[in-house]
Amino acid sequence: MISLENLEIGQEAFIRSFNNSDLSYKLIEMGCLPGEKITLSKIAPLGCPLAIHVAGYELSLRKEEARTIIVEPVA
């Protein structure tokens, strides 16, 4: 298990849990559900924010927000 910020571009993973309760409400609302498959699609040139494909669309989040999402990379 690693946090989303440690994924590489193009890498797929399943969301497992959140380690920040406050933020998890917003993330769930945006379709980042536990069990959902995501792909890290891009990282901004300055290293933050990054973007993921989730629930059929593309979502951008800041690094500290990505850090709160625990994922399991697809083997």
Partner: peptide, 9 residues
């Protein structure tokens, strides 16, 4: 609370 969580349409 400030979120950046933003859709890239």
């Amino acid at each position: 609370t400030s979120f950046f969580v933003m859709e890239l349409p």
